[in-house]
Design a protein around this nucleic acid. Structure first.
Lengths: 205, 205
DNA sequence: ACCTGAACACCGTTCAAGT
DNA sequence: ACCTGAACACCGTTCAAGT
């Protein structure tokens, strides 16, 4: 008789969530390449074959982490943009800061999300989730175009420019290729704002 | 007696270059995570222990590939910018196209270069090489600032904006997150040009 | 229904031993 | 000086067998 809220011995309670949680920890300390299903199983206190009852394979478990990451990032962007009553320009800047923040604070998840290492299985993947960041930007841009502060161009085009630039900054920061000390949050924030302002106001005179 | 231009049997000729060459092929078909030293050895026709005479470990071999990638990319950018006698704006656009082209045509190398998977060993790595792309852009920007067509801002700031945006575009393309069919070169080129133009001319009216 | 243990074909790395 | 083969501690995945 198994129930009674996670009984004395292992039949487990609910593995699956324990696996996802453990996978997050393993990913954090080993990185995407060093990530091992056997270690996740050990962390969760089950045999190395047990995870296969809950995930088709290693890639499926990583996908779960990836999806969660996309949702977190989307939320972070929207929260930043809706924070205070800004004009579209300021919203765009705050969204950029949030984007880069997420990346720098979750480098391994970010690599997993955008590295293309995990093959996006055609099956049960909703690719629109991965594009949530872009869509949040699109909303801001649309507002700016409508109220006339942005150029009269297709919003998708402008949103791509904004996405592209904050994504590049995030990726360079994660890769450690920015001259800035990435751990100094103040300096990084100012860098992000400077880049975003330049994107908004352009490079030419 | 070993010499006489790579004699009959294996003492090898010059392994090391054979390893680098084989490693490129293995990386191409297996990706950074699937990349295995034992397979490289097999491809080169030697025992799985032989590579250790020439590279400290697996990471060192990958580093060699990474360095080569940075040099290739830098060259591609400079070639594109110097191609025809452009003004700085056009140079920037052509450099962007070259950057994204390199990424899309060498996705695994690009991931290796910018993924941060290989720990940059403090030792014999010249990190400036990795930044060659940025410096090529800096040259173009400097020219634009001096002749007065770009804004009167620190060239490093403007170059970071340009780098950031083309890098982001390249990374999104490699990750397969652009709505565009990445194999349609024409469409991708136009997308790159559109983004670069927007960066140059800004988003606001 | 959920988990285990053994098994298979792979890894990276080291080290004595061969030429 | 350069390479091999065996050995060790790891992998992912499968499958019969246990509760």
């Amino acid at each position: 008789m198994p129930p009674e809220h996670a009984v004395g011995r292992y039949h487990h309670g609910d593995l699956r969530n324990a696996l996802i949680e453990g996978a997050g920890r393993v990913l954090l300390e080993k990185g995407t390449c060093g990530f091992s299903l056997r270690e996740v199983a050990k962390v969760a206190g089950v045999s190395h074959a047990a995870p296969y009852r809950h995930f088709r394979d290693k890639a499926a478990l990583l996908q779960a982490l990836r999806q969660a990451g996309f949702e977190q990032l989307g939320l972070a962007i929207r929260t930043a943009a809706d924070g205070k009553p800004h004009n579209p320009e300021q919203k765009l800047i705050e969204a950029s800061v949030a984007y880069v923040h997420f990346a720098v604070q979750n480098p391994e998840i970010t690599r997993l999300m955008f590295g293309g290492t995990v093959e996006l299985q055609e099956n049960d993947v909703r690719p629109d989730v991965s594009v949530t960041a872009y869509e949040s930007l699109l909303d801001i841009i649309q507002e700016g175009v409508e109220q006339g502060s942005f150029r009269q161009r297709p919003p998708q085009e402008l949103a791509l420019v904004a996405w592209t630039s904050m994504h590049g900054l995030a990726m360079l920061a994660v890769a450690g290729l920015l001259a800035v000390e990435a751990n100094d949050e103040r300096v990084l924030d100012e860098l992000v704002r400077a880049v975003a302002r330049n994107v908004i106001y352009g490079i030419v005179k």
